[in-house]
Nucleic acid binder design. Sequence first.
DNA 1: AAATAAAATTGATAAATATCACTTTTTGGA
DNA 2: TCCAAAAAGTGATATTTATCAATTTTATTT
Lengths: 235, 235
Amino acid sequence: MSIKGIFPIDKWDFKSRSVLAGLPDSDLEMLMANQTEKVYKLTEVIFWEGGYPSGIFYIKEGKVKKYKLDKDGREHIIYVANAGELLGYHAILSEDRYPDSAAALEETRIAFIPKEDFVKTLQHSDVLNGRLLKNLSHEFAVLANSLSMFAKSSVRERLALQLIILREKYKVNFQPGMPVEINMGRDDLASLVGTARENVVRLLSDLKEEKIVETKGRTIIVLDVQKLIKIADYK
Amino acid sequence: MSIKGIFPIDKWDFKSRSVLAGLPDSDLEMLMANQTEKVYKLTEVIFWEGGYPSGIFYIKEGKVKKYKLDKDGREHIIYVANAGELLGYHAILSEDRYPDSAAALEETRIAFIPKEDFVKTLQHSDVLNGRLLKNLSHEFAVLANSLSMFAKSSVRERLALQLIILREKYKVNFQPGMPVEINMGRDDLASLVGTARENVVRLLSDLKEEKIVETKGRTIIVLDVQKLIKIADYK
DNA sequence: AAATAAAATTGATAAATATCACTTTTTGGA
DNA sequence: TCCAAAAAGTGATATTTATCAATTTTATTT
């Protein structure tokens, strides 16, 4: 099975991932009528697990981590969302509370859209309905991949996969030719991979010796994606 | 955090989980117009990961495992679907191939609904749209729970959680007062928990000593759900 | 630019889980 | 009902991962 089987990066590229891209102007106007914008600082929380949703969030610029806290208060990052993505709509659709928390991974500009406007637009727009169905199914498939990765793969394999994915996500900030700098703290990376910081650090230093990655302070630069793909893919 | 936080069993009971329950008759008629029924034998495959979807499947009776195969050909069970649930629609919504395989866990009666009828009904029915959005969001939340369970919990904790969930799923077959028999092979249970058969067997025999479960041949009977909840919930 | 705090890194060790080799029990046909 | 064949169970051991206790490096503030 190729990496494309494990994570269908090619099927749904990061720019077109926006649920809102290509939505008719009239729908967008209805949706965005009462949006308010806010800039979240690094680590600032956007919403809390268990809270009642009062609207949805559209990331205009920046990155957001979605995470859950375990009983010891340690966080597990489920997903890193990029600019263009919509947050917090699951809870409204499932008529439930937020299943996870969200916090800014860097300075992030976000539009808040009141629940009423979202629901109204949803009732009005077949296109938005279709987009959400497609997006949700895709998100589900990605999550299912993560799950079987957790069930079947070693920490090294999971780290390799996350580095591939993060590299794609951090790419958008940089010029072609420039190396992609993954600017993420070791704690967050460990939480994403599902292990302790010390293990991530050790495995990263292995990858450094193998000339697969390079670190500059806290940023990580991937030198050889192909080798990462091999690590993530094969035993 | 209570078990309700970990797995919102109470919010969406197993009978009402059907996407189709309460759908207007006209929608149901359109959807079911060309259904064909088939009985799948134990272990018989319903669809394969990577295949192109030609329709969706409605479980009338029985149970189905959804799983992925790893590179060594070992399967990892992602989800156990019960009677009343709809299968294989993610792939149609995301306009992609099946992200996982499905096979019968017991003798299972399933209605096949051609893709065209599903798509047509979807375009026609706001109710079905809403149901699918709600169901997908809910499935997503459940999967996210599994994911953080994998990331943060021990095999014993995961086993306890799966036994709680399986007990609910196998309940529907039995009369009140009768003990719920979880009739599942150790290999499948191990695959669901994300470990090897030997480990599940060992942990089950621990649970037997603790008088929390009882086994009769291959079936497992839960004697003390409260203790399972404690195990799944706290470190 | 020095001082301080925070984050990253390393090493040693403990704990959990996986794997292998094997025995016993269960199950489903002859 | 007996007889394979399959599944379940057990024990010993290897491997992986987590945890603890430090030190070093990087980032931030004055």
